[in-house]
Structures are given as C-alpha cells and as structure tokens.
Computed example of a mutant assay.
Amino acid sequence: MGEQTFEEIAAQYRRELHLHCYRMLGSVTDADDVMQEILLAAWRGLDAYAGRSSLRTWLYKIATNRCLNAIRDGKRRPPAEPLPPFEPPEPTRRGDVTWLQPYPDEDLDDRLVKREHVQLAFITALQRMPPRQTAALILVDVLDFQLTEVAELLDTTPTAIKGALQRARASLNTPAALRDPAPRDTATEHAVAKRFAEAFVADDIATITTLLTDDAWLAMPPAPHEYFGPPAIAAFLRASASARTATLALEPTGANLHPAFTCYFVNGETRTNTGILALTVTNDRITTITRFLPSL
C-alpha cells in the first residue's frame, strides 16, 4: 500500500480517532501526542494488516491500546498547579482531573457527534474510571462497537467487557443522560451565556449569582480549586476581581458543544489570552462554570 494511500486513510479517520483519544485522555495536548504514535504504528503495521477486521476497527484497536499505554506509563501527567495572583477563598474541594482541557467546537461535527458524548461532565467522569472501563464504555456506548469486537480490540473476552461496561455505567453520575438526553435549546443557552458574559466583564457578581443553580460548581483546571454553590462561587469571583489590574474581555467561541468564551486581559494595546471559559446551561440557569486556565 503506497504512501499516498496511507495519507488518504489517515485523513479519513484522523478526526474521529483524535476525538476518541481525547475522550480516553481528557486532554487535547495528550491526544495530539498519542495520535502521532497511532499514525506511526498504523503505517508500520500496514503490511501485517490482513483484513481480518474492518480498517476502522483495526485503527481503533491501535488507538485504544496506545491511549491505555499512555495512561499506564504515566505519560498523561497532571500539569503544574498554577498559583493565583491573589489569596483565594478556601475551596469546597480540590478537583482530581486537573489535566482536563476543552475540545474546540470547530473540530466537532455536531451533526455526527452527540452532545452528551462530548460534554465536559461526561469527559470528566470518564477520567475517573479505571482505564479499561473507560475504553469499554466509549467503544460500546459511544461508538457502537459490539461486545465481541471490543473484546478483540482489548484482547479479552466478551464476558470481561460486559462486566467492565456494567461497572462503568454504574459509576457515571448521570447515566440517564446517555439514554435520554434533554434536547438542546441553543437560543436559551446563548441568551444565558450573553447575560453571564456581560456581568462577568463588569464584575457584576450579583447578576452572575442570579444565573446560577443552587448546586452550581466553579472549576478551574489545571488549578484544583473547585467551589460549590452561589455563595462560594461569588466569594471566589469577588476575590479575583479585587486583585485584577487589567480590563477583562470575553470573545464567544465554543468548546465541547458548550457555550464558551476566550478570555483576555486588555492593557492598552496589549491583549493577553488567559484561557477558555465554558458554561453548562440547564434550562435557563448555569450549572457549571469551567475556567480553563493557561498551562504553565
């Protein structure tokens, strides 16, 4: 098989394999790194590929096992914890998935990717599972592989995959979201996000508080600090605003099919990118604010 043919194959499957690696690893950076290994392994293994399974299945076998190797070998290392330039309030808890990164909407086809399979809550839940349970859940419930196919991909038995799948489903905080997701109301999402952005850049903490559900969370990977409930979130936002020395600006973007914004500090003619802010909107209220801080 010639090089041009391989390039065509790689182009055909690159985006879905990259998204698969992101689901497995929770990090676009790590997915980029593993994809290089996958493409190299596939190129080297083309002569040995005997067509016993579909080409797509064979590529997913390589991709899944490379991701499992990366996790096992410690290649997915949590980034350094950033130090805030102010004294933050005591967090409600310290998050354990500090390597989580947003996936750009521009790289997703929302006609083909189900919202519930890329939302940040789901990606975070995947990171907390044992890796082989994560792989089983993604391959069966997200990608629709059969148990027998997944058993072959992971060099085990269908019975073992069935057990891993049951445990993975049970560990999800909101398993019903996979079976019966609520329809997306994009108009409401955009309206809520617009109100939030206007209040956020104005440091209007009172308005932000009215937009939050009673059980809302604020998370800031790679910082582990997480705040639960409107009072705790408001306390952190006040502390942050009081220490800011530059103007804050938000530009609409999209991440993981959430309404999101690119954050900037503006000081005269200088604009400094300070990360991505993504919102989870349920009905007309915000349930999660995820502020992705720049990695060191």
Rank of each mutant, 00 (worst) to 15 (best):
M1N: 08
M1R: 12
E3I: 05
F6M: 05
A10T: 07
A10R: 15
R15V: 03
E16S: 13
L19I: 09
C21L: 15
M24S: 01
V28D: 00
A31Y: 01
A31S: 07
D32C: 02
V34M: 09
V34T: 12
M35E: 07
E37R: 14
I38D: 10
L39G: 09
L39V: 09
L40W: 10
W43L: 08
W43K: 01
W43P: 01
L46M: 15
Y49Q: 06
G51W: 01
L55A: 08
T57M: 08
W58N: 06
Y60V: 01
K61G: 15
I62C: 03
R72L: 08
D73F: 13
A80Y: 05
E81G: 04
P82Q: 04
P82D: 06
P84E: 10
P84L: 07
E87P: 00
P89R: 13
P91H: 12
P91K: 01
R93P: 01
G95I: 06
D96V: 10
D96S: 12
T98Q: 02
Y103C: 02
E106A: 14
D109Q: 07
D110R: 15
L120T: 06
R128S: 09
A135P: 09
A136V: 05
I138T: 08
D141M: 09
D141W: 08
D141S: 14
D144H: 15
L147V: 05
V150A: 08
V150E: 10
E152M: 11
T157M: 04
K162V: 00
G163W: 04
A164Q: 14
Q166H: 10
A170M: 07
P175W: 03
A176I: 03
A182P: 02
P183H: 04
P183M: 03
A187P: 01
T188V: 12
H190F: 06
V192L: 00
V192D: 00
A193Q: 10
R195P: 00
F196T: 05
E198K: 14
V201D: 01
D203V: 00
I205M: 06
T209A: 15
T209M: 09
T209V: 09
L211C: 10
L211N: 09
L212N: 03
H225I: 02
Y227V: 03
G229P: 02
A235D: 14
R238C: 05
A239W: 00
A239V: 04
S240N: 13
T245K: 10
T245S: 13
T247K: 15
L248H: 01
L250F: 11
E251I: 06
E251D: 13
A255W: 03
N256H: 10
F261S: 10
F265E: 10
G268W: 06
E269N: 14
R271E: 13
R271Y: 08
N273G: 12
T274E: 12
G275Y: 11
D284N: 14
D284A: 11
I286T: 07
I286F: 03
T290G: 12
R291T: 05
F292W: 04
L293T: 04
L296A: 15
